[in-house]
Each structure stands twice: as C-alpha cells, then as structure tokens.
C-alpha cells in the first residue's frame, strides 16, 4: 500500500539545515495497523506529513497504492488526499461552527458528491462510531472522545485507502483513549490500513506493528501481538 525508499527531508533554519529524515525505507501492506513511535524530534510527524502529502520529501520515492507521489502541486495534493487519505489529529480539528454531521460530510463536499448522498453517508458513518443521535450537535457540545470519534467518522467517510492518525489519543484520558483505540482496531479489522503516530507504549501495543524512529532513521521495526484496547 505504502512504499517508501530512501526518503530524506531537511528543513532550512536560517543558514543551517536541519536533517530530519535521513533515508527512510518503509513498506506498509494493505490492512496493517502500524504504530510509528519515537521521541519528539525523531521525525515521526514529518514522516506522517510526507505520507499525508502535507509536506514533500527532498529525496527518495513514495508510492501510494501503486501511484507514484511526486511533483505535487497544491491542487494535485488536495486531489490525492481527498482520494487516498483520511486524517485524524490530536486536537480533533473539527470545524467548530459546523455540526457533527456537517463536519463528517465536508470531505464528501470537496469530492463533489451530491447533497443527499453526503447526508446519508455521513449519518451512516456517524452511526458506525456510535454518534448518530449527536449528529446535530456542535463540537463544543461534545466530549473529547466524542469529538475524536466524529473526526474518525470524517476521516472514514471519503473511503480512503489509508488512515493517518497523529497522536489520536494525545488529548484524551486513558478510558477514552482505549475507546478510541478500540474503534481504530475495529476499523483495521475491517481491512483498513492505518498508521498511528504516538509516543505512548500502551497505545503502540494496541497496534500490530511498531516502527521506532530515532534521529531520522528507523531503528526498530517489529511485528507485535496486538493487545485489545478494551
């Protein structure tokens, strides 16, 4: 599903250049649930951003579902993101003046889907995350866990190939974290490829594979026996 070879990324800060990713080779097969771990500054978020086409690499190749991701302009990146990827953020990133249902339906709007189809599909996905009766509520009326579940529904609604979760439980307490991870596991069990960036060991252990980054290189890549979140 994801095929990355020899990926380099450096940022220019003033006259110095900060080499963040120093040759990453990384293959993810369909249906995997991968935890990307590392301390801050290890380059894990940069890697996720490149995979998410929010950032571009300086060097190396990246293929997503057989499509080589290169020479991206903003429009093309937006199209690919809309087609291939679903994002889950630490701070949920819901649009605060839109209801749960409208938030979930938004990616479909940018895909040019018809209104009825959007509403129906969004409601369906809200139902899947157990928030059907909260459809008309604003994010401010939802708890953290509920917000993240809305965000997950939003990430899923466009039927992406890969789900990218950047510290999905970072802003949640342990009980809600487990609930959210259980949902992620369930989605993975239905066959979706998911990448989770985290720095928490117990969250990582709920995945099927752990990739550890340190100073811009992968230092460990192991398959683990998954622990059920709940």
């Amino acid at each position: 599903m994801i095929n990355i070879t020899n990926l380099h990324k450096s940022y220019k800060i003033g006259k110095n250049s900060l080499h963040v990713l120093k040759g990453i080779d990384f293959i993810v097969a369909e249906g995997e649930l991968v935890a990307i771990m590392g301390s801050s500054g290890s380059g894990k978020s940069t890697l996720l951003n490149i995979i998410g086409m929010l950032d571009v690499a300086n060097e190396g190749s990246y293929t997503l579902d057989g499509v080589p991701i290169k020479n991206l302009d903003e429009t093309k990146a937006a199209k690919y993101r809309s087609k291939f990827l679903g994002f889950i953020f630490q701070s949920f990133n819901l649009i605060n003046y839109k209801t749960a249902l409208e938030n979930v339906a938004l990616p479909l709007y940018y895909q040019g889907k018809k209104r009825e189809e959007r509403q129906e599909k969004a409601l369906n996905y809200l139902d899947n995350v157990g928030l059907k009766e909260w459809a008309t509520h604003l994010p401010s009326e939802l708890s953290g866990g509920q917000k993240q579940r809305v965000a997950i529904a939003r990430a899923l609604v466009s039927e992406p190939k890969v789900l990218l979760a950047d510290e999905p439980t970072g802003a949640l307490d342990s009980t809600t974290s487990s609930e959210v991870m259980a949902l992620i596991q369930e989605i993975n069990n239905q066959g979706k490829t998911i990448l989770v960036v985290t720095h928490e060991e117990d969250i990582a252990k709920m995945c099927k594979r752990i990739v550890r980054l340190k100073d811009g290189v992968i230092v460990e890549d192991t398959l683990v026996s998954q622990i059920a979140a709940i």
Binding site: G52, A78, F87, N93, Y110, S158
Partner: peptide, 16 residues
C-alpha cells in the same frame, strides 16, 4: 487559518 488548513487536509483544492 486552522479551519482553512483542515479544509485543505480533507481535500479542498486551493481553487475551492
């Protein structure tokens, strides 16, 4: 800024 970023992340093109 953030809202526009979110919209972009979930598939809005610059033109939109």
């Amino acid at each position: 800024t953030k809202e526009i970023g979110i919209r972009r992340a979930i598939g809005a093109t610059p033109k939109e």
